[in-house]
Design a protein around this nucleic acid. Structure first.
Length: 292
DNA sequence: AGTTGTCAAGCTAGT
DNA sequence: ACTAGCTTGACAACT
């Protein structure tokens, strides 16, 4: 079991998500930002090793505007050595890497242009992981997408569009249950058809479920992960107490986390802590694991 | 040096 | 019709 946090580290004093405005796009500026981002990524990974965090989500902004038509720069080639070097470090230290494209990636959109842009963005994410030389356990996670007032049709459209994706995307792509549209059991329905692994998000399940117990659903979800996909991934968070909506807590509650670990006894998986204070919560989580 | 409006992209629910 | 919220954070133009 590995513990990780997404995209941002507030302790190392740099960010791997530096960007700029589209208006000020130039190849030089792009190179500059990628250089800074890669250098910071190294620092974060080293920090993670020093602190026992073996799971990390790389932010989508590592290469700004990579999937935008304005970008004709071959960053994969130009930064080949840097990616290989970081990739070697990741493999040597046995770090698990994932990525999570943002809400603009909608594979089941009714608009073919949005689908095309989404595929471009997925290509970019997979190119990052390919450039790092990582195997199929490095995943790219998205949600099912929109409902458009016709859920059955929208689920079918996801399945059809998924089938058309190139293999280098399919082998990394996984879906996560969300808090408003597609529950974990609906993800399971889709997975049954196309055999896509599912990321179980504990907070989203709390907010959207069909009265299934988390452990029951999770045991089914675990089976969607084959050996080549690596251990199942869980996104862990808790709801702000008394919150009507589904907002993340600011910092890990060690007692709730301990309860969760006990409830999932006997199951093995990697945990991504989707919590505001990032590495601080990851530290708390490790402390809980040592005691349990 | 610090503050604040704005930023490539989509969808949903709430006002 | 419009906007907040979603992994919101980071930039850039303004004091």
């Amino acid at each position: 079991m590995k513990i990780g946090y997404p995209c941002i580290n507030n302790s190392v004093g740099c960010t791997a998500n530096r960007t700029f405005r589209l208006k000020s796009y130039s190849e030089d500026l792009l190179k500059e930002k990628i250089t800074e981002n890669l250098s910071c990524l190294k620092k974060i990974l080293q920090y993670n090793i020093n602190n026992g965090f073996l799971f990390f989500r790389i932010g989508s902004g590592l290469v700004p505007f990579a999937s935008h038509p304005i970008c004709e720069f071959n960053w994969q080639n130009y930064f080949k050595k840097d990616f290989q070097e970081i990739g070697r470090f990741i493999k040597e230290k046995n770090i698990r890497i994932s990525m999570h494209p943002d809400q603009f990636v909608v594979i089941n959109s009714q608009n073919p242009e949005i689908v095309a842009r989404s595929i471009k963005e997925l290509e970019y994410h997979c190119q990052i992981l390919d450039s790092l030389g990582l195997d199929q356990t490095a995943k790219v996670q998205i949600h099912i997408g929109g409902v458009y007032g016709e859920k059955e049709k929208s689920m079918k459209r996801f399945i059809e569009n998924y089938k058309k994706l190139p293999v280098f995307i399919k082998k990394r792509l996984v879906v996560e249950n969300d808090d408003k549209s597609y529950s974990a059991s609906e993800c399971l329905e889709i997975s049954e058809e196309i055999k896509i692994p599912i990321v179980f998000d504990t907070l989203h399940h709390e907010c959207l479920n069909n009265q299934e117990k988390a452990r029951d659903v999770f045991e089914k979800i675990i089976k969607t992960w084959k050996k080549k996909d690596g251990l199942p991934i869980i996104d862990y968070s808790n709801r702000i107490i008394g919150d009507k909506r589904c907002r993340h807590i600011q910092s890990l509650d060690p007692r709730l986390f301990k309860k969760f670990i006990k409830e999932t006894f006997g199951l093995d998986f990697d945990i991504m802590l989707e919590i505001k204070d990032k590495e601080l919560s990851a530290k708390k989580a490790l402390e809980v694991l040592v005691v349990v």
